[in-house]
């Protein structure tokens, strides 16, 4: 096994692969190299965590309530349609 085949990812390359990694779209070899980079590079570990936090934050955006006015309009439309059907 030559040194060349063990070439490592740079941090700059890794940040472009983060989404592919999280989506499980890297090949087995790429994935292994990605994880190996994290083994020796704490800053990239922080970067990955930041991405994961960002995604969790997006998923936490709270529901807003349905404005009363909108509810009324929709209910009217629903009634009207049902009546018209009969």
């Amino acid at each position: 096994m030559t040194t060349a085949s063990r070439e490592y990812l740079t941090c700059k390359e890794l940040v472009e692969l983060v989404t592919d990694y999280l989506e499980d779209q890297l090949s087995a070899e790429e994935r292994l190299k990605f994880e190996q980079h994290l083994n020796w590079c704490p800053p990239c570990g922080h970067y990955l965590e930041q991405m994961q936090v960002t995604i969790r934050a997006a998923g936490s955006l709270t529901e807003h309530n349905v404005p009363e006015a909108a509810q009324k309009v929709l209910l009217e439309a629903f009634r009207h349609f049902k009546t018209a059907q009969r």
Binding site: S5, R6, A28, E29, L32, K33, Q36, N39
Partner: peptide, 25 residues
């Protein structure tokens, strides 16, 4: 040497095994 971490284990593999540059799958 590429994976040094806190704990080391001996493991057993089964099924299909692929050799990669930095490990096996």
């Amino acid at each position: 040497p590429y994976w040094v971490h806190d704990e080391l284990y001996r493991v057993e593999l089964r099924g299909t095994v692929h050799a990669l540059s930095l490990g096996v799958l």
